[in-house]
Each structure stands twice: as structure tokens, then as C-alpha cells.
Design a protein around this nucleic acid. Structure first.
Lengths: 228, 228
DNA sequence: AATATCGATTGATCGAAATCAAACCGCCAT
DNA sequence: ATGGCGGTTTGATTTCGATCAATCGATATT
């Protein structure tokens, strides 16, 4: 099921070097990590791995979006995180048990950089730069997921959507227009909502000057959104 | 508001050395970290720090429980994590911005080990053992909080309670009795429930052989709980 | 022993979002 | 144009848990 694994082409190398986990490395550590990376791509809906499978690699997204999610015993799915270009996932397994702890699926066609867990672990032991970069990544993800718990527990659907929009429009602007980088159903999952609930949340925000047409979202009054 | 800061007494030293973040260190790194630790204690309800405050230390719980939580703009609170003996928190700030990202409150009288962020950061740069231990801690917390998101999104109140009970009774047993280590209201918050909802969830589990008296919980049939 | 206090429970009601079902809408292929 | 097709929207209903209010119970206080 794994698509063919290749050396990275020069375009992918450029993208990867800008990813946070690589960008903060010194030149030596960067080379070392780049040498460990291989490229792999998947079609939309492909499963990258499943919860419980033996974990040998972690990933960094080069293009497209990947959905990390869990299943309950009825087969219902809940997204834990949506990873876009520059984001890495499953790096937490560098220092945890031998199995993946959630499912990962390509939300659309994706290309990924692939890192052997054991090799990166060894590299981190020898190069503090790499260890520091991993710690930063882990700390960032931890905070992101904590935000997610707090948002789920404190905010209503329209508030979550408003929050998302505010985090994705330029700071210090009175109005903005945003193009969603993925389908609405994916955004719904990311926010812990059913697609219908997202749709209704957008309707509710019309009163606060939010206009939706396809993936295009117009925000007339950013400050009004902050009051939601 | 900070209680007096002291050297650790020998009892506290023993507890701290068994904490995961310390227990995985080699002898040299362990000494180094132990030298950085100081002791501090708080009364129940005391606020250790607030979201947005400048962060200079992280903590490891020696006794009691600490509540990490966020506020929404109406002042409603949502717990993000409950930390008990041996658990550390705010260590994610070693590699993040300069401010605390959530509030921390003593759920009861607590004693804590206190680590200067800058000093530990410096120690981690020099000692791979310490860096590895921090990465393990971050990875574990990340996974724990991811579990929390998934549970919130996938499970009903009785299921969350059943899940908690199963995680806190000996593996491979047909029946068990558990003593809650803290108030039910704290457990409610940890599970993302109002206290009333926790109470009702316990009632709902009576049918699955769960008996509650104060902090004492009897589980007649562990396997029945797994089916919830 | 009487009383104040705090946490837990129970009951009644409300509200938010999930679910189920149907309609809608661009988009592509024929 | 015609006809699907997948994603989105809208409507109706249901479910779950929050909230509000009252009671209960156990522990501390005097």
C-alpha cells in the first residue's frame, strides 16, 4: 500500500528545508537530516498507517493535507489533528512505544518526507541541534493539542469557527478574505464538528459580517468576530 | 503569593527521584537535575501561575494534585490536565515563548519541585540524557492530551468514566476496587464533565456492576465495563 | 448535641450539536 | 444539454450534557 519511495527532488528539498523542524537546524544538522529524508506520495483517501501498527517512520508534509484520527468501537471517527505543508507528525514516537497511536489518512493527494525513526533517534543523540528541534516540535504540538482540548470544552461551534478564521487572517486588519486550503468537511473535523454543524456555524456568523462562497470567506469586520 | 522556596528535604528528594522525568536519567544527569530542584508548597485553591504571566520555572508534583486549565472570556473554566505525584508540567515552555499558556491551581495542599527553565535548558544542551528525558516527557504528554481530544470527541460521559476506571485498576482482573485520589469534582473536570454529569454517569454504570461510596469504587465485572 | 459548610446527588429544564433525511449545487463526463 | 456525483446546505428530530435549583450527607465548629 505504500507508494514508491524516492530521493527528494529539488523542489521538495526546498520545501522541506523551510519546514519548522528543519528550518531551525544549523547547516551541519540540516544536512544530516536532509540525508535521512526520502519522499513518498499518496492519493486522497489512502491510509498512511493505522493505530496499533508497528511504527518505523515519521513524516513531514510537503504538499496536501493529512488527517490524524482515532476510531471508537462503533467505527466512528474523530480527527485529532490536520497536518498541512511544513508540519510533521508521529515524531512523538521517537521516544515512545513501538506502535502508531492513531490513524493517518491523506485528505487529498499528498507528498511527504519520510524519516526513519531509529536513524533520527540516533542522530538526535549525537547532535543537540536535532534534539532541540525535536523538542520544539513536540512542545509546539503539545500546546496546539492543549488549545484544542480547551477550545472543545469552552467554545461553541460559531466561536470555534470565528477563532479559526481569526488565526488565519492577517493580524491588525479590519477586514480580510480567506481561502480555505481544504474542504469544509475537513475543517469541520478539525474543529470537532459534524459538517452540518460547520455549515450552520457559518450561517450564524453571517450576522457578524462573514460571507461564505465555496472556499472563499469574506470577513467584513475582524473586530466583530473577536466579540463572538 | 509564592510560598517560601526551600531546598528539598530527603523525603521529597526520594519522591522526586522516582518521577519519570528523573528516573530515566543516568546518575550524572540525575545529580545535575537534582541540584537544580527547589521545593515549594501551596495550599488548596492557591494559584501557581496564570495564563500570560512570564514563565521562569516548571514544576514536578511531589504530593497533591494540580489543575491546569483555561478560561474563556465569560470566566468559565475548562481543565486541560490534572497533574499528580511524579508528573511534571509547563516543561513545554523550555522551548516555547516566554509566557505560561494556561492557569495552574493547587487542587489541594501540594508540594512541588521547581526547576528554573533557563538552567534546565542549558543543562539539556550539554547533557543528552536530560534532553532525552525531556523529549520523553513531552512525547508522553502529547499523547495523553491527544487521547483526551479523541475521548472528548468520541465518548459519552459513562464511557469516559468507564475508560478512566479501567485505566486505574490492575490489568487482568475480573473485579477491582479503586480509591479515587481526589475529589469527584476534580475527576469531573479532568473528564470534561460537570460534576452533575459525573454523578449521573456513575449511576448509569451501576447497571454494569459499578458501586460508588464516597471515594471508594467497586467494580464487580471489569469485562462488563469494557463493553460500555 | 446543634449548626454551619462543602461536596455530592437528584430532579427539571434548556440548549447545542449530532443525526437522519432531503434538497441543492457546482462540476465533470458522456 | 443531460445526467450523475460528491460535497454542501437546509430542515426536522433526537440525544446528551449543561445549567439551575433543591436536597442530602458527611465533616468540621462552636
Amino acid at each position: 500500500m505504500v507508494n514508491k519511495i524516492l530521493r527528494l527532488n529539488s523542489r521538495d528539498r526546498n520545501i522541506l528545508m523551510k519546514a519548522p523542524i528543519m528550518a531551525s537546524l544549523g547547516p551541519q544538522a540540516l544536512n544530516r537530516m536532509m540525508d535521512l529524508a526520502s519522499a513518498v506520495s499518496f492519493e486522497g483517501r489512502d491510509i498512511l498507517f493505522r493505530e496499533g501498527e508497528a511504527a518505523d517512520v515519521f513524516y513531514c508534509v510537503l504538499s496536501g493535507y493529512v488527517r490524524l484520527y482515532r476510531l471508537n468501537k462503533d467505527g466512528r471517527e474523530a480527527d485529532i489533528r490536520i497536518c498541512g505543508p511544513g508540519e510533521n507528525f508521529a515524531e512523538c514516537l521517537l521516544y515512545l512505544g513501538p506502535n502508531y497511536r492513531y490513524n493517518a489518512q491523506a485528505a487529498e493527494a499528498v507528498t511527504l518526507a519520510r524519516f526513519d525513526l531509529a536513524k533520527v533517534r540516533a542522530a538526535a543523540e549525537q547532535d543537540n541541534d536535532i534534539a532541540r528541534s525535536i523538542m520544539q516540535s513536540l512542545a509546539n504540538h503539545l500546546l496546539t493539542v492543549m488549545d484544542c482540548v480547551a477550545n472543545d470544552r469552552l467554545q461553541t461551534a460559531p466561536q470555534r469557527v470565528a477563532h479559526y478564521l481569526l488565526n488565519n487572517c492577517p493580524k491588525e486588519s479590519t477586514s480580510a478574505s480567506i481561502r480555505l486550503p481544504f474542504q469544509k468537511s475537513l475543517l469541520a473535523g478539525k474543529l470537532g464538528l459534524a459538517p452540518e454543524a460547520l455549515s450552520r456555524a457559518f450561517s450564524a456568523l453571517r450576522g457578524a459580517g462573514v460571507t461564505v462562497r465555496g472556499r472563499l470567506i469574506q470577513i467584513n469586520d475582524v473586530n466583530a468576530l473577536r466579540q463572538i
